[in-house]
């Protein structure tokens, strides 16, 4: 009971006075970290009257990275616009993610609710979990061809079990008391599921989804390793063959931004939808 207030029952919850100030202070510290990183990067790569310590071949200056980004935006890369590369990667990524959520969450819920379903489905999922999914890429290429399907499947391979298992565990950790309370208020099985088990599991499901975002971005790189000539990760890999470090960095930053943006998006949805998360 951390979020309740003691003493007078009707007193309003007042945040301690020092809190907003401290938060602002912390923000400045975080900002400082990035400023120092960017500053050292700029200094080491010869931004100024001195010679670069690190050759642009290995690490281009921030200015060159920005310039490269603008050039890529203008002229595209290897016959396709930057938007196309980002678009195809986002397509692969979000299709995989969409199907993992749409199929994985209900399956996990079923596994959590029903012992038999769990006995049938959980062992195979647990068995494939430890296999490094990148190792399956050649197999997927043979089975599903060199098109987008094999890429979507290799991204889904690690994401699906995480989402399904976390949904299952979320269901299994729903407080027995809450279920009993609902039953003794007259709720039948369907009402208990839809109004108790499902909402009580949502925080756990969201956690599973957010954990798998960074894994899915990693798998995007693996998926675009071979058998394609488009995509943002493919752009980075191809540019690396020509030692075009500036392009590699632009591509990496774009992927980082995609991962970060998605994480923020789901974090935003989480705070909006499951406002009660962690407040039991």
């Amino acid at each position: 009971m951390t979020d309740t207030y003691s003493g007078s029952e009707t007193a309003a919850l007042s945040p301690s006075g020092a809190r907003p100030k401290k938060r602002l202070h912390d923000r400045w510290l975080t900002f400082g970290t990035f400023a120092v990183l960017l500053g050292s990067w700029a200094a080491a790569t010869g931004t100024g009257p001195w010679e670069p310590i690190i050759s642009p071949l290995f690490l281009p200056s921030p200015a060159l990275v920005v310039q490269t980004f603008l050039q890529l935006w203008e002229n595209g890369f290897q016959g396709k616009s930057l938007g196309d590369h980002i678009g195809i990667s986002l397509y692969r990524f979000s299709t995989a993610f969409f199907f993992c959520i749409v199929l994985g969450v209900p399956l996990g819920l079923l596994m959590g609710m029903n012992k038999r379903v769990r006995a049938i489905v959980e062992p195979p999922i647990q068995a494939i979990r430890p296999i490094p999914k990148i190792a399956l890429l050649p197999l997927f290429l043979i089975w599903f061809g060199i098109g987008n399907l094999s890429k979507i499947i290799v991204i889904s391979a690690p994401v699906f079990p995480i989402i399904a298992i976390s949904a299952m565990q979320a269901v299994r950790s729903v407080s027995e008391k809450k279920i009993q309370a609902a039953q003794s208020l007259g709720a039948g099985r369907w009402t208990v599921f839809s109004r108790i088990v499902l909402p009580a599991s949502l925080p756990g499901i969201f956690t599973g989804i957010r954990v798998s975002i960074s894994i899915a971005v990693t798998m995007l790189v693996a998926a675009e390793l071979t058998a394609t000539s488009e995509g943002i990760a493919w752009m980075a890999l191809t540019a690396a063959e020509f030692l075009a470090t500036n392009i590699v960095i632009v591509a990496v930053l774009i992927m980082a931004l995609i991962g970060f943006g998605l994480d923020r998006l789901f974090w935003f949805l989480e705070t909006r939808i499951v406002h009660w998360s962690g407040k039991d």
Binding site: M1, S175, K177, K178, Q180, A181, A182, R195, I196, P199, A200, L202, V274, W276, K279, D280
Partner: peptide
């Protein structure tokens, strides 16, 4: 009526 933790937080 339970001791605590039986309310539906959502």
């Amino acid at each position: 009526v339970f001791q605590q933790g039986a309310l539906f937080n959502w």
